Amino acid sequence: MRILWYGHAAFLIETEGTRIILDPYTSADAGSYAPIADPADLVVASHENAKYHSGLSEIVPPFQYLLGTEFPSEGVEALGIRFEAIPVFETPEKLPGDEVTILQFRAEGLHVAFLGDLGHALSPEELTRLGRPEILLFPAGGPPTIDFPLIPDLIAALDPKLILPMHYLTPKINLALQPVERFLECLPDWPVDRVEASSITVDPSNLGSRRIVVLDSAR
């Protein structure tokens, strides 16, 4: 499985011959990230927000589009992969209009969880639904997503092998977020690998011990 970080919350996951783009931004609205401008078989968005999470206009068609907030409780199967969505909120107040989702799927013997715009601690029921993903795509920039004091307990409960930070301050984003270093300070016992690349290839045999991999944005 190859995972590429475009920037902000947008990833390309290449698995089992399928190209999956998660939460694509619209470049003209998100700051100075370049257009994604890649083909995809599937585009999967955690919620509807064309600026930062569901921008379809710059993805090369044709592709199938899945929106997590519209998933049934049992999830959706597309191109042989079952995607599940856990309804959560972007803010700790959990107000109407703040609804987002966590997305998860399994492929190549790996359980991948994309936390999207999660903004609060998870309940026991939500943790049970999420389980123990090996690969965790984590919003690392603080509010409006999950605040830093809540991060260590959530990571301990999920117990992933690999964390890929996303949704944090870079020179290219136009949101008031914190840099990835603030996230790393919350997890001082986790080894950090700055790979100086925009992608990583993983399989069950090379996950090894737990680590955080900081990717460079591809756009």
Score class of each variant (00 low, 15 high):
Ile81Val: 09
Pro72Arg: 12
Ala30Asp: 05
Pro149Asp: 00
Val214Met: 03
Ser217Asp: 14
Met166Trp: 08
Leu66Ala: 03
Asp153Ser: 14
Phe138Ile: 07
Leu103Lys: 12
Arg194Phe: 05
Asn206Pro: 02
Val213Arg: 03
Val43Gly: 00
Ser217Val: 06
Ser73Thr: 15
Arg219Gln: 12
Leu56Trp: 06
Pro165Ser: 01
Gly97Cys: 05
Pro143Arg: 09
Tyr25Arg: 04
Tyr6Cys: 00
Ala156Ile: 06
Ile155His: 03
Glu48Thr: 14
Pro171Gly: 08
Arg19Met: 07
Pro160Thr: 00
Glu93Ile: 00
Lys94Pro: 05
Pro165Cys: 00
Asn174Phe: 07
Arg219Pro: 13
Leu164Gly: 01
Leu207Gln: 07
Ser199Leu: 11
Pro24Trp: 04
Leu12Met: 12
Thr26Arg: 15
Arg82Cys: 11
Leu162Arg: 12
Gly119Lys: 05
Gln178Cys: 04
Thr170Ala: 10
Pro160Met: 01
Arg106Val: 13
Lys172Glu: 15
Asp203Leu: 10
Leu137Glu: 00
Tyr6Asp: 01
Tyr33Trp: 08
Asp153Leu: 11
Leu175His: 11
Lys51Trp: 10
Asp23Gly: 06
Ile212Phe: 06
Gly68Lys: 09
Ser205Phe: 11
Ser32Leu: 09
Glu74Gly: 11
Leu118Thr: 02
Leu56Asp: 01
Leu184Trp: 12
Gly119Tyr: 01
Arg129Asp: 06
Leu164Cys: 10
Cys186Gly: 12
Ser123Gly: 00
Gln64Arg: 13
Met1Ala: 09
Tyr52Cys: 11
Pro171His: 07
Glu108Tyr: 07
Pro62Ala: 01
Ser27Gln: 09
Pro152Asp: 04
Arg106Leu: 05
